[in-house]
Design a protein around this nucleic acid. Sequence first.
DNA 1: CTTTAGCCCTGCAAGC
DNA 2: TGCTTGCAGGGCTAAA
Length: 379
Amino acid sequence: MPELPEVEAVVRTLRPLVQGRKIRCVHVLHPIATKPQDPAQVARQAQGRRIRIVDRQGKYVLLVLDRGLLTMHFRLDGQLLWFSNGQELRERANQGENGVHVDVALELDKGVLGFADRRHFGHLHLWKSVDDCPGLNALGIDALSRDFTPHCFAALLSASKRPLKDFLLDQSRVAGIGNIYSCESLWQARLDPRRRANTLKPREARRLHKAIVSVLARALECCLHPAPNFRDPEWWFEGLERFLRAYGREGRSCRRCGEPIRRMAQGGRSTYWCRRCQEWAHQRIRTDRVNTPATKKPELQKKPDFERSLARLEEVVRRLESPQLSLDDAMKLFEEGVALSRECQKQLEEAEGRVEILLKRADGKLAAEPFDPERETES
DNA sequence: CTTTAGCCCTGCAAGC
DNA sequence: TGCTTGCAGGGCTAAA
């Protein structure tokens, strides 16, 4: 289920591998992958072309050729594979039990890029230009682009009566958000997935925008460490389960309030959400009360991020000790390690600062307003 | 114009 | 045990 962060991580890993390379030959091993385009025609037109740019729009991967354009969409579980050469491809691709499933292979002047999707939901297409690809033309504003501002997002919201969940999944409005990250963003913003988009108040729209941007950015970081590995067909994005707060957590307790996460059908898809944090009726009652005491301390919210940083730091240190590490890779790891170390230090200091404030308050005025951890996700 | 239902396809889980 | 059935998933297309 690659969504925008996964596709972005794939594109960033793919770029240095294929950008500037020439397509020697195209093997369409499963013609269904180019449907409804004629596989022979796709192969003929891509052959001999050079890959100028590797890009992403929404969940589409774009290989801009010196003439024409290749698009790939992974849908549910499409993936990319890398083979050293044509011989390795022939030995490993679709060879019975221990073979690797490959739908289309682009044999380059160095290496072979494979596109694979066992379920054949994913597609690879060839177009004369961007304008000829209906899927690309229909895309709305990319959720990772600079143009995705709180202002423009609010305008889009106010133009739709659809439930928030359906709205977020609509690629023609905001491109790149799928089922996982729509659930995560709505959980983070504490908004009811059933609420109609145009009923959000300006501050709620800003909160949702901020949640989307932050959820996608954190997911992208997660997808880049470790980076996608096209050489291993079994490889998949790791650590996402630890990252998820709502999606796929039916029955398990909400990380914010402890209420069991629920699952409901919306537009034929599963929506995971917390009834206590996200239900509109509850929120109205809560905002009516003036001084609702915060139920959870901020340390609890920070903890998973801190632990993740620390775990990653340990991993970086472990890798630095590996003997077969190139100087270049070692420098990159070292830099990442220093940044992580600073981040962890900062979080520790912040936590200490909070403890101090609490102690002073205990000594001083009793009526001091409680620290609201939820304010962190607002404004 | 907007919104919705059905379809594509395979792997896996549940039910018989 | 082995079979059938049903469901999940993203996005396109046709219909409402």
